[in-house]
Design a protein around this nucleic acid. Sequence first.
DNA 1: CAAATTCGTGAAAACGGTTTCAGAGCCGTC
DNA 2: GACGGCTCTGAAACCGTTTTCACGAATTTG
Lengths: 375, 375
Amino acid sequence: MPRPVTIRTVAERAGCSIATVSRVLNGSARASAQVEARVRAAVAELGFRPSEIGRSLKTLRARTIGVVIPSLTNPVFAGSVAGIEAEARGRGHTPLLTATDYEPEREREIVSALVAQSVAGLVLTVADPDANATLDLLDAEAIPYVLVYNEPTQAERAAVTVDNGAASRALTEAFLAAGHRRVLFIAGRFSTSDRSRLRHQGYLAAMGVAGLSPEPVLELDYLADAAAHRAALEGLLAGPARPTGIICSNDLLALSVIAALREMGLCVPGDVSVAGFDGIAIGRLVSPALATVDQPTRRMGERAVERLFALIEGQGSRTVEHLPFELRTGGTLAPAPSLSELSLSEPEAVPAPARGKRPAQTASVSRPSASRKAL
Amino acid sequence: MPRPVTIRTVAERAGCSIATVSRVLNGSARASAQVEARVRAAVAELGFRPSEIGRSLKTLRARTIGVVIPSLTNPVFAGSVAGIEAEARGRGHTPLLTATDYEPEREREIVSALVAQSVAGLVLTVADPDANATLDLLDAEAIPYVLVYNEPTQAERAAVTVDNGAASRALTEAFLAAGHRRVLFIAGRFSTSDRSRLRHQGYLAAMGVAGLSPEPVLELDYLADAAAHRAALEGLLAGPARPTGIICSNDLLALSVIAALREMGLCVPGDVSVAGFDGIAIGRLVSPALATVDQPTRRMGERAVERLFALIEGQGSRTVEHLPFELRTGGTLAPAPSLSELSLSEPEAVPAPARGKRPAQTASVSRPSASRKAL
DNA sequence: CAAATTCGTGAAAACGGTTTCAGAGCCGTC
DNA sequence: GACGGCTCTGAAACCGTTTTCACGAATTTG
């Protein structure tokens, strides 16, 4: 077993001190051309690679960033992590990845572990970005962090997200414009997702403006299987007054609901229109294409890291930044079936609300960047 | 700015030496009940959390494991990473995640960076597990690693995978058993995926055994969009001698191919049966369900970490371990249309196997509203 | 009861880098 | 020719932890 190659080995080989080796490798001070050449030769011959641990011990900061997400199994999080990873790597940092599996109490221990790793900062998606002991801990320790997908409304916290309320209103209005009057909202667990809550509020607001009474919300676990979803849906979709439209608070839930509806013999979108939320790539491949609100998933991850490094360098602001979303209608969102008994004519095409960016978007969005297709 | 809390702060507060604090926290030696109580009290009061960096410097190994995958955007890799993360966390380790974006030359620099981080070991999916300078580097440095999805045939390397050749033969035989004779194989890039190569070989073998001549392989980039896939397919699927079955070397590719076929006016599986490979969860939600080879994705990640820790402790073996796969037929894999049906312009609905659903979703594919997309 | 263990503890030496500080040599200037 | 200001370099401190070693006290053993 050969002794490991350290900076001392290199110094010995190059005939200089370890300080000089360090200076040459970091460019922190100039060395004579002669010495520098000898050091570089020694480094190459020995295959020396400076230990990040040694460096970190002096700096008291590792060149890593902590990443905390609920689950990798949802492509929407995988997309943001891809952006985080690429952007961090471009800055010489490596992400430390952890998943909470939607258990809020796990957030705390995970973040503790990441703090112990002396991460330079964190990017996280938490259950509740307002009342959150974990984030308070980070604030207390003055460790910079940026939220993704979360939309804190009270605390001053850096976040990158879309305007979930506006997006949900726009999506609901698209249903109304297509002639739907009874629109059901199916939400992921409110307790583990402020997105779900905000999207439901947007639905309520749009229904209210239209003078329609919202249906009682159905709270489902998107990780459960289609059979469970079918069981939950069966009562609601029996009878003549059943909804003609369903908005799901995320795409996976929507796909599962569609599968359940079809098993029940209902046609999507012939009998029931369904839309999701998030814009996962696979939604574009199914047929008919999944109606949804498209988020710049990867870009959100990248942007979070950009802002994180601004915070690390003392430049950043602790504000909520909204990136533009895009409404994707058609496909599983079709005009409501006409009530043949009451009226033979198709419902009039109500002019749809503005598609794409809502005026409510903040102007602070950095680049409109038609981001690379994730898939 | 308060001075950071180190083990010295704790020792001072508890009125003992730092050695005693370390011993109490690690349980490496017993301390008197009295002292131990004082130490624990001091730790709690100060909120002390031992720095992993300090510990790692002494140990010369961090409690992290490097994870190298081609891309997080493919759910099949996200699934294994989820398993890796959970299993590593259960053992007090945190994964350092990096993606190669299918660029083999990036493997090298990424692994170098991870080695510099003094990871305890690595779990990786590489382009070529046999002739691979990156893996040679790890061997030279005696850093333990386990491959996932890769199936090295020559070098002695620890790997967790399914038997891709056998799986592909089984899938091809399922096509033949359903009466298909002209079966096309569409592969991801061979240069970046040994899975793709092995699966193609399995297809060739099964076709050979059946005395059928295989179609020329079509090598596609699964990351490209459906339009590109449609362009590549159009020539092959014109004419009367077109294939009635298509095997794709992964699920994402299969979903994209199906979308392209439907755009071309072909019915899946009425006109063409399609199967993928990997068993991503979403394949079960689309209708008809995607025929595929199901791999225990998450379990593979977990198992890789189990074996990695065995290697770290000097117990493990450097062998290829095959986990069981499961053929998922039906859905998009239906009996081949008879010749008479092929020659007719309007093929009737083929009775779908398993739970019968209307296989013909094509009618709703090209809804006029489907093309409305902002921006 | 003396000797031999065991036990609890602290001082100090690593571990591999970065960085400060001081000194040595060299140049130009008065 | 002395001096000040460069430039290059090395010795040593330091970062936070683990771990070895030694030592006195308490306990067991002969």
